[in-house]
Design a protein around this nucleic acid. Sequence first.
DNA 1: TATTTTGCACTGACCAGTCAGTTCAATAGG
DNA 2: CCTATTGAACTGACTGGTCAGTGCAAAATA
Lengths: 202, 202
Amino acid sequence: MDTRSNRRQATRTKLYEAAVTLIAEQGFSATTVDEIAERAGVAKGTVYYNFKSKTELFEELLRHGVGLLTESLRTAADGTAARGGTRVEALDAMIRAGLVFIDRYPAFTQLYVAELWRTNRAWQSTLLVVRQEAVAVVETVLREGVAGGELSDEIDIPLTAAALVGMVLVAALDWQAFQRERSIDDVHAALSRLLHGRVSGR
Amino acid sequence: MDTRSNRRQATRTKLYEAAVTLIAEQGFSATTVDEIAERAGVAKGTVYYNFKSKTELFEELLRHGVGLLTESLRTAADGTAARGGTRVEALDAMIRAGLVFIDRYPAFTQLYVAELWRTNRAWQSTLLVVRQEAVAVVETVLREGVAGGELSDEIDIPLTAAALVGMVLVAALDWQAFQRERSIDDVHAALSRLLHGRVSGR
DNA sequence: TATTTTGCACTGACCAGTCAGTTCAATAGG
DNA sequence: CCTATTGAACTGACTGGTCAGTGCAAAATA
């Protein structure tokens, strides 16, 4: 059967799950391969049977995680478009999707933010690619909104996209770390209000 | 006389500067005390003469850096108030001050963001205190704006403050890391536009 | 003189990566 | 069916190297 490859895949997944939590908590260098193996319930040798090195395990983990995020953002945007929604509604849906993602994978988000702006690290190029994928989804929606006259043509698309992503990322991490009692709807409402410019004025 | 403590202070500052760059690039655990000493142009023994441990050096560095940031935000807010400006103008001035700070101390910002949401680390409690100081400055201005009727009383102050800080932080880091060619005015304009709700509509 | 810095050797803990050996599901042969 | 064989998957003790922190005598600085 393909019980073989199923088994391998299961082992890899266990390793991802163990690594993401530990690295989010402690950072890459402070996390030992022994710890990862132990938490995954696997021998150290198995880590090296499945991955070339500690760094490679981490890079694959990054690719895997950002893949999930990008997919979920895109689904949100496409879904809105299919229902004939506006571009602003699409942005709102993407904020929601981002929050849901972070709620489900808080450790991954933490780790991603912690590593994203570091320079001179082995996985720098991987991160660059992977970041661009995610930001591009937002940029596309902004561009469509400007083209359709729904958004001001004076906005700076790359900078605005980065700011929006940052707003969601940081607000969500803060929510997870310091304001756990809030519901996802509270957070969504606060961010949505900023997006719609309903902060100043009453 | 006073030259004594000046000399010590100068050594400490050299160590802060060396450590902040290295730790921002590589992370805390991947940075060795030997490297820090070498980059500061100081003997390893001097590090331990001035700081109890590597961790203590790092914690003092955090306190020092966030102190500078908080002070600069507060100055911006107070300056606006003194000139009789509105609260929205104060927020705008704080965005500017944040950008100037990050432009001057990019390494510190990077390191702060990388560590802020980690749990289970030695300096977690230091960070919590230090974060609250910075966010509190923003919250105060928001609260005053709501009280004066200038901002909607429906905004969620803690969440909005976190989102604003995040927006600035991430946009600025992205600017430094991926969009270096942009001027500080470009970045400020993009963020200001979001704050004023001048994104949707034309 | 008192404080601060230097230079350097040393220790003990820790850790990434290796490798010889074990387990076991799948398959082939009788 | 049942047993033997194969090789992918996994194991964990071991190695070579790294690094935080120490100790201390000598030198520089004020």
